[in-house]
């Protein structure tokens, strides 16, 4: 006998049951813009109103290529994109070439401590479409705060962190590691389902 009643929907959502016919993926509210990644994620895109962690070996290893389609789509629909304390200067020409309406882009310069505060404010306010941050020295509590703030403000939050953080647990709803060689994405954790075991190819044709 089963110890607890599990609803059928929950079981199906977790994708632990193999179904003969592949079900049609529902249209996600926040598609990533990468078809292969969308197919691998349980919601068919970024978890809406939650934090996504992007883990890279070093800044500049494909994180922009991953997020640009989403940012372009959000900026087009009039949402504001906020970069809080980016590690380098964004090159306007490249960002514009990625299809991002620069008028919707704001950059906040802040030191390490104020940056987290600024991220939380931006997420909580609900006036931004996506907030990108690069927390370096950050603990579980601070990340949880950001996750809660993203839920409150129903905003997409992206935290780019180093690969070494992959070993630690994180409250983020989705964790994606970007491998440069071979170029692929590994989903480490995704809320609402088991993480796909095989990596997603991430072609570099920029």
């Amino acid at each position: 006998m089963m110890g607890a009643v599990v609803s059928l929907d929950a079981l199906l959502d977790e994708r632990r049951i193999w179904k003969g016919r592949q079900q049609v993926a529902s249209v996600a509210a926040q598609p990533t813009g990468h078809a292969a990644l969308d197919a691998a994620l349980p919601m068919g895109g970024w978890p809406p109103a939650a934090m996504t962690e992007v883990l890279v070996a070093a800044n500049g290893s494909g994180e922009l290529r991953l997020m640009w389609p989403t940012l372009a789509r959000l900026a087009d629909s009039g949402e504001r994109i906020v970069l809080v304390a980016p590690p380098y200067l964004p090159y306007a020409q490249a960002w514009q070439m990625a299809g991002i309406d620069l008028r919707q882009l704001s950059i906040i310069h802040a030191n390490e401590r104020d940056a987290l505060w600024a991220v939380e404010q931006c997420l909580r306010s609900g006036s931004c479409g996506a907030v990108l941050c690069w927390p370096t020295k950050v603990d579980d509590r601070a990340l949880r705060r950001l996750q809660v703030a993203a839920e409150t403000g129903e905003t997409l939050a992206f935290a780019c962190r180093g690969n070494e953080a992959a070993a630690n647990p994180s409250p983020a709803a989705l964790r994606i590691a970007i491998d440069v060689r071979p170029s692929q994405l590994r989903v480490l954790k995704c809320r609402g389902g088991l993480a796909p075991s095989s990596p997603v190819p991430f072609t570099a044709d920029a």
Partner: peptide, 25 residues
Amino acid sequence: TMPWEQLRERLRARLGDEAVAGLGF
């Protein structure tokens, strides 16, 4: 809950006038 203009002023109040910038080509 808070429009962007208000958020921007709040950020500037704490981080300094130059802290919030845009990006132009």
